[in-house]
């Protein structure tokens, strides 16, 4: 995702469900509105889970990027 500078980066490579989501929720609680969290994860379930979590919580899924060994997911905290 070009042009996006995350305010915080979460290392979830090697973690399986539900820990990437658990850690994402914890991180988002410490962040302010409109800040962007980047999640690095290689769990295949994260493709659906990050989106589903955003849909349910109202936070904004900005997109994902294939970084080879893992994916980078970008989420903006809702106002």
């Amino acid at each position: 995702m070009q042009g996006i500078t995350p305010d915080k980066v979460q290392e979830s490579v090697g973690q399986a469900c539900p820990m990437p989501i658990v850690n994402m929720a914890k991180n988002m609680r410490t962040m302010s509105a409109d800040q962007v969290l980047e999640i690095k994860a290689d769990d295949e379930g994260a493709h659906a889970d990050v989106r589903a979590w955003c849909e349910q919580t109202g936070n904004v899924f900005l997109g994902e990027e294939n970084a080879g060994e893992y994916f980078r997911y970008f989420v903006r905290k809702k106002a």
Partner: peptide
């Protein structure tokens, strides 16, 4: 615990 943590994570 998996479902409970996922549910709580979703607020």
């Amino acid at each position: 615990f998996t479902l409970a943590s996922a549910s709580a994570a979703a607020g």
